[in-house]
């Protein structure tokens, strides 16, 4: 498993190749990429600054991957999250999950993103024409994460 926090961009093909690591047991890789949009809450966004809490970020992401591995049959998972200054259309985050079959890969990929959104210590600050502002957390992200709570309807765990 790997968790990478970096300022530089990532290459999807290279990251997936690294995740697969020549393992012929892998029959499915699900990937999610998060990108910077040029618009948020009706304001034009010219730049995004991503801050994190070094030391906690890595631990939090590793705990999320561990939890995904406990819930689904995964071969491996990878999270790459960028920090620093980003521009519209830049990639922010990559989650890639490898498993034998697609069901586990799809579900675990969505679970990791939902938990990352609500548990990993990253913060976005947007620069707009009106100045810069810290992005507010969305209630819809909490709702998405809550779907995966133990026993909650809609969670696609292997239990």
């Amino acid at each position: 498993m790997s968790v990478l926090i970096q300022t530089e961009d990532f290459d999807l093909s290279r990251e997936v190749a690294r995740l697969r690591n020549g393992n012929p047991r892998i029959g499915a890789v699900a990937c999610f990429m998060g990108l910077v949009r040029d618009m948020n809450e009706d304001a034009q966004v010219s730049r995004l600054t991503l801050e994190h809490y070094p030391g906690m970020t890595e631990k939090a992401l590793e705990a999320i991957v561990d939890e995904a591995k406990a819930r689904w049959d995964l071969v491996d998972a990878l999270i790459v999250h960028r920090v620093g200054e980003l521009l519209p259309m830049d990639a922010i985050v990559l989650v890639a999950v490898a498993s034998s079959h697609r069901g586990d890969a799809f579900a675990a990929c969505e679970f990791i993103m939902d938990y990352l959104k609500t548990r990993a210590p990253f913060w976005k600050k947007e620069a707009t024409a009106e100045g810069s502002r810290w992005v507010d957390a969305r209630e819809s992200d909490d709702v998405a994460a809550a779907r995966w709570a133990d026993g909650a309807a809609g969670a696609a765990g292997k239990v």
Partner: peptide
Amino acid sequence: VAVNQTLAHDESAVAPGDEVALLPPVTGG
């Protein structure tokens, strides 16, 4: 609140030498 880089609760213990971080709601991804 995170104590030593792990999310904590109101009742979590804080001892000398600990790092106690105050976190606004997260907005990564």
